[in-house]
């Protein structure tokens, strides 16, 4: 007889198969411990007792699947999160980007967009915004809607402001948003430079040649197989000598593409694609 634990694993496998079959979203190569925790939370919130019960609802109630999809994309993100990373992007990466007349930047897995606006603000302050197109993509349309609106809780602005200055901000963050009641809305001046679009890293392809790809704290949710697949997509999307910025705890070290990159700053996880031999 399988143990309770083995039964649970089997049920979650079936749930992921059901989601893939019904909606085409493939979570089978996500890091399992994090995924199971989200399943567990959804069971508690929806008052269900097992993943098997979720399977029925997922198959027959698209609205329930939307809930699960939302569960899968809720992460912590801030403006200028890890300010030291943004500082190095500003000081080191921008110096190279300046040599191009047109610059493409891709925020892959942009979630609710805080880091996208952080980048746009830095580009603006460095006089690079006008020559730059920022592609901000996520597989979750709900997150993209929030990102596109650029409206955040006003109480977050204090922390964001501190981050902004630590990241080398040259003005005042308040210059870039309007506070109204409990919300802060990022100014429209960035809209013309940012394209928000749905892109699923698990199944979608290269869509433009990029000078810089920022994908922070997305790969930690994937297993090694899926990480390799996504990193290959990034390698194929970057121009020669293009930059890749990963999350603080993510690395190319064990990946299939590690030989295609050099490390610009290990502490900040900034990599640069080598020129083709």
């Amino acid at each position: 007889m399988p143990s309770k634990n083995e039964l649970w694993v089997f049920e979650v496998d079936l749930l992921l198969e059901a989601i893939f079959f019904r909606y085409g979203y493939d979570f089978r190569h996500y890091s399992r411990a994090s995924l199971e925790r989200r399943v567990e939370n959804r069971l508690a919130l929806s008052d269900l007792s097992s993943p098997s019960e979720m399977i029925t609802k997922v198959l027959h109630e698209p609205a329930f699947f939307e809930l699960f999809l939302k569960d899968m994309s809720i992460t912590v993100t801030d403006m200028f999160r890890d300010p030291h990373v943004f500082r190095v992007i500003r000081e080191v990466v921008f110096k190279q980007l300046r040599t191009y007349s047109r610059v493409n930047i891709w925020h892959a897995g942009c979630a609710t967009g805080e880091e996208v606006y952080s980048m746009a603000i830095m580009l603006h302050e460095e006089g690079l915004l006008k020559r730059t197109r920022i592609y901000a993509t996520d597989y979750n349309n709900r997150s993209l809607e929030v990102a596109q609106q650029g409206i955040y809780p006003v109480e977050k602005m204090q922390e964001f402001t501190a981050n902004y200055h630590e990241a080398g901000g040259k003005g005042s963050l308040a210059d870039y948003y309007q506070a109204k009641y409990e919300y802060a809305k990022i100014n429209d001046i960035f809209n013309a430079s940012i394209t928000f679009a749905n892109h699923n890293l698990v199944k979608d392809q290269v869509f433009a040649q990029m000078n810089l790809i920022v994908c922070r704290n997305v790969l930690i949710y994937f297993d090694q197989h899926l990480q390799d697949q996504v990193l290959t997509l990034f390698a194929n999307s970057l121009v020669h000598r293009g930059y890749l910025v990963l999350g603080d705890k993510e690395t190319l070290a064990l990946s299939k593409v590690q030989d295609e990159f050099e490390c610009v700053s290990y502490e900040q996880r900034i990599y640069r694609k080598l020129a083709k031999v």
Binding site: V9, S31, R32, A33, S34, R37, R38, I74, T75, V76, T77, N217, I220, Y221, G247, K249
Partner: peptide, 13 residues
């Protein structure tokens, strides 16, 4: 977190 294969993973939930 720790996966069933005893390897660590991290998340920003």
């Amino acid at each position: 977190l720790i996966e069933r294969n005893r390897h660590f993973s991290l998340n920003v939930d």
